[in-house]
Amino acid sequence: MSLNVDRDSMAFTFKGGMLPMTVMELTSADPERIREQLASKLSQSPAFFQHTPVVLNVEKLDEPHLALERICAVCRAHKLLPVAVRGGPDPVKQSAWALGLGWFPPQEASRPRALESVADAAPAGDGKPDAPEAVATEAPPGATAGGRIYRGTVRSGQQVTAPEGDLVVVGAVNAGAEVLAAGNVHVYGALRGRALAGIHGDDKAGIFCRELHAELLSVAGNYKRLEDIDPRLLGTTVQVQLFDGQLSIKSLD
């Protein structure tokens, strides 16, 4: 924290961030096979392919040389934007850099589950509170409209995420808990924790809750802390939305 720097003279600031990212786990290095599968996916869920950034995971491939450039071209042709490569031997790393992509070291343990397998089990959230301790259950691509429903109290230390679409919490979000969604966040109970809507940058997203006591409200990265919130609005039913880059909290009563 260099307090002497004049804020207006700074061109940028570095900020750490955890962005949800789609990982494309390659099980074939053949660009043609990838093209075929992408084409059929595109017809199933066109909403998913909107210049979506993806990380190409090549850990499962056992090939020293990859036609990385062609694979990237196939992805771009289907409106997927490869931003980085994960895993692979040194030549793969070099060619990733040559293509202007980032490279991540392989992640042996706790590899992300394939989106397909989650899609089957996905209308998660009903029934068991399955997402304690910062578990981000991935919603299926294309189910953007569906999002995720969580029933029960989201407790201190827990994090519930809807990486695609809206998150609906039927219950309270307690202090120290965090709820996040790519789309809107609805809380049918008291909101005492943190709520972040539009985590991919959707500035049309909003937060709706029955009883506002939130520690933090954020839409597309614009946030307000509890301290910044008009005390008259506390405890009321509100909607939170962005207007001209400003977070506006309006009573619904």
Partner: peptide
Amino acid sequence: VRDSDRIIGLLASK
């Protein structure tokens, strides 16, 4: 109360 809330969350998962 907040710490109890945290513990109740752990009871449901750990």
